[in-house]
Design a protein around this nucleic acid. Structure first.
Lengths: 339, 339
DNA sequence: ATTAGCACTCCGGTGTTGAGAGTGCTAAGG
DNA sequence: CCTTAGCACTCTCAACACCGGAGTGCTAAT
C-alpha cells in the first residue's frame, strides 16, 4: 500500500529533521522549516495517520514524532535522494588511495577503514579477504638460525602469512630449496581450500625421506590454513560515543564488547545479499545480533581483482545520515577497487 | 615525617575500604569493620589529622573520607602487603604460557595482555621490543611474481617484518641471491639502529651495478627501519567501563581516544625508571598525560633473552587494588621471562 | 587520652509546581 | 469535503522545598 505524495513529503521531513537534531519533531517544526504549505493542524492529522500505519512513533503523548524502523526503511527505499560528496571529501579520499605507496592488502584496508570512519563519524567495519578462497602463489622457507626457519606464504590477493618453524639440523640448504621448489610446483595456483588433507598426504608420500621434518611443517601449514577466521578491521570505534543515543554506559559497553568479538562481527558482515547499487542497508532489528538492534549497518561487497573478496560497512545509530553514508561508501569502494 | 602506628592503621583501613566499596568511608565504618579497638570519635580525630596532613580528602563536609593521591602513595610505599595469588589464577597463567605453541613474539605478547586484563579487570598495556635495539638476523628477498618480490627481515628478538617491493625484470635469480647473501654478510649481527645511512651508502657503492633496483629496496629498508614506533598492545580496553568513576561518557571518551593513539601510549610506558622489586607505580597526577591523571599505572620492564626489551603495565583508576595488581604483574612477567 | 552525646552540615531522594511543547478534537471557513 | 484556527488537555522537564540519613566537629565527662 502506497502513501500519498503529501504523506511522503511529511515522512521525509520527519526523518531528515530527526536525523539532524536527534529530537522528536512536531507538526509546528515541519510547517515552519519545510515549505510544504500546510498548517500544523493538517500536518498533525497526517502524522497521526502515519503513526497508525506504523511509520512514525511517539515517545509519549504530547511529544513530537520519531521515525519507526518501518519509517526509516521506507525512507531508504523510496524517499532518499542520492547525495553528492563535497570536493574536500573527494580530495581526502583520493589522497589516501594515491599518495601512499600502499602495496600490502592489510595496510590498504586499515587506511580505508580509518578514512571511512573519519568521513562519516560512524564506525567502519571491513571484512578482509577469505584466505581459503584466495590462490596459493608462493611459499618459501627461509633459514633463520641453526634450529629455526621462517615459513612464508603469499597468496594472489596479496596476503602474506608467516610462521616460525623448527628445522632439523641435518637438513642441508640445497635439500631445503629442493623441497621448497617441489612444494611450489605442486601447490601453484590452487586456492587454499583445495590444499586439503588428501593433497598433503600425497605430498608427504612423495617426500617420504624428509618425513620427520615435514611432519612439523605440514602440521603448521594445515593449522595456519585452518584458521578460517577472516580478519575484521575496525575504524572509529569511539565514534559511537558522540551519538546522543549512546549516553548510557551500558549500551556503550555492549557495543564496545561486541567490537572485540571479531568472529561475531564476521557473521554480521558475511551476509552476501546484494542490494540496490550494491549497497545493502540493515536497519535496527533487521540485524540479527541484538547488540546492534539500535543501529543501522550500511554495507557493500568489494573486489580486488575480479573476485569478490570481502565486505565493507558502516555502523551508526538507526538515526543515521543514510544518503551521505551510502555516497561515501560507494565512492570509497570505487576508489579502492581501482587499485 | 612519619605517622603514628595508629594513623597508619587507619589510613590503611580507609584505603582498603574505599578500594573495595568506591564510597567515602566514615569513622563509624572503620570502627565496625576493622578491629582497631577505638571508638568512632577517636578515629574521627585521627582522620581529621590525616586530612590536614594531606593523606585524606573529604568530598564535602559530612561525608566520609577518601584517600588523596598522597594517601595512596604512602599506602603503596609503606603499608601495602604482598599478596599471594589464588591457585586458579596461577593455573590460568601457566596455561597461557605452557599449553600454547607460541613462538612468535607478537602472539606471545597478545596473549599476555589478554591474560593480564582478564585477571585484573584493568586495561593492560604492553610496549613491544624496540626494533632499533634488536639485532639484524636475516634478510631474504623472495620473488613473488614477475614484477614483485617480498622483502623479509628477521631480528633476534623474533620480530618478522615484511614488505612487498618491486623487482626489475632484468634481474636473474642468481643475481638476486648473490645480492641477498652479500647483504646478509654485511648486516649480520648489527643492531638495527646501526644500519645507518652511512652504511647503506657504502653498500650502495659496492653494489653500484644494481643501483636502480637497490634504490628501491634500500628506500624501503630505510623506511621500515625508520618506523621508530614501537608497537603497543592493549588488552581489556572495555574494562574501564566497569569502574564507577567512569560513569561519565566524556571521561570514557577521553581514555578510549587515548587508547587509539599508540604513540602517546608509548611515551607513557617508556619511562625507564626501575622501582622496588622492579615494579613502578604511577598514581594520578604523577602521570604526565592528563588523560590518565585519574588513573594509576602499575608497570615493570620485561626481558626476553637477557636484554630489557619492553614495558608492561596495568592501568586502572587510582582507586585500584594495588597489591593484587602488583602480584599478578610480577607473576605474569616472571612466567613470560622464563620462555 | 578517650569517648559519649549532641548540634550541625550536606547529600540524595521525593513531592510539588509551573512553564513549554505538542497533541487531538471541534467547529468554522473556503 | 478538505483545511485550519482555536482551545483544552497531556506529558516532560527544571526548579524548588522538604525530609531522613550519614557523618562530622566540638564539648564535657570519664
Amino acid at each position: 500500500m502506497s502513501l500519498s505524495a503529501r504523506k511522503k513529503e511529511i515522512l521525509r521531513a520527519v526523518v531528515i529533521d530527526y536525523v539532524k537534531a536527534a529530537q522528536p519533531v512536531g507538526s509546528r517544526t515541519i510547517a515552519r522549516r519545510y515549505k510544504i504549505g500546510l498548517s500544523p493542524a493538517t500536518i498533525r492529522n497526517e502524522m497521526a495517520d502515519l503513526e497508525e500505519m506504523g511509520y512514525l512513533v511517539q515517545p509519549h503523548t504530547s511529544a513530537g514524532r520519531i521515525p519507526s524502523q518501518k519509517g526509516y526503511r521506507f525512507y531508504v527505499d523510496e524517499l532518499m535522494e542520492a547525495e553528492i560528496l563535497k570536493d574536500e571529501e573527494k580530495v581526502s579520499i583520493r589522497k589516501v588511495f594515491h599518495d601512499r605507496k600502499l602495496r600490502e592488502i592489510e595496510e590498504i584496508i586499515k587506511h580505508t577503514s580509518q578514512l571511512l570512519s573519519s568521513l562519516t563519524n560512524y564506525t567502519s567495519l571491513i571484512l578482509g579477504p577469505h584466505l581459503k578462497k584466495s590462490a596459493f602463489k608462493k611459499l618459501q622457507i627461509m633459514p633463520v638460525d641453526m634450529q629455526r626457519g621462517l615459513l612464508v606464504l603469499v597468496t594472489d590477493t596479496g596476503f602474506v602469512k608467516n610462521k616460525l618453524i623448527n628445522l632439523p639440523q641435518t637438513l642441508s640448504i640445497s635439500e631445503l630449496s629442493r623441497i621448497v621448489s617441489y612444494l611450489n610446483s605442486k601447490l601453484k595456483g590452487l586456492t587454499i581450500d583445495r590444499i586439503t588433507a588428501t593433497l598433503i598426504r600425497e605430498l608427504r608420500r612423495d617426500l617420504y625421506f624428509h618425513v620427520k621434518f615435514l611432519e612439523d611443517t605440514f602440521t603448521l601449514l594445515e593449522e595456519s590454513l585452518a584458521e578460517d577466521e577472516r580478519r575484521v578491521f575496525l575504524g572509529g570505534t569511539t565514534n559511537i560515543l558522540n551519538q546522543p543515543e549512546f549516553g548510557d554506559i551500558e549500551k556503550v559497553k555492549a557495543l564496545l564488547t561486541l567490537f572485540e568479538q571479531h568472529s561475531l562481527l564476521a557473521t554480521l558482515l558475511a551476509s552476501p545479499v546484494v542490494g540496490v547499487e550494491g549497497v545493502v542497508i540493515k536497519i535496527g532489528k533487521e540485524n540479527v545480533l541484538k547488540e546492534v538492534q539500535e543501529c543501522s549497518l550500511v554495507m557493500t561487497t568489494y573486489c580486488l581483482g575480479k573476485e569478490v573478496v570481502g565486505t565493507i560497512g558502516l555502523l551508526g545509530p538507526t538515526r543515521m545520515e543514510y544518503s551521505k553514508t551510502v555516497a561515501v561508501l560507494q565512492h570509497v569502494v570505487n576508489s579502492l577497487q581501482k587499485l
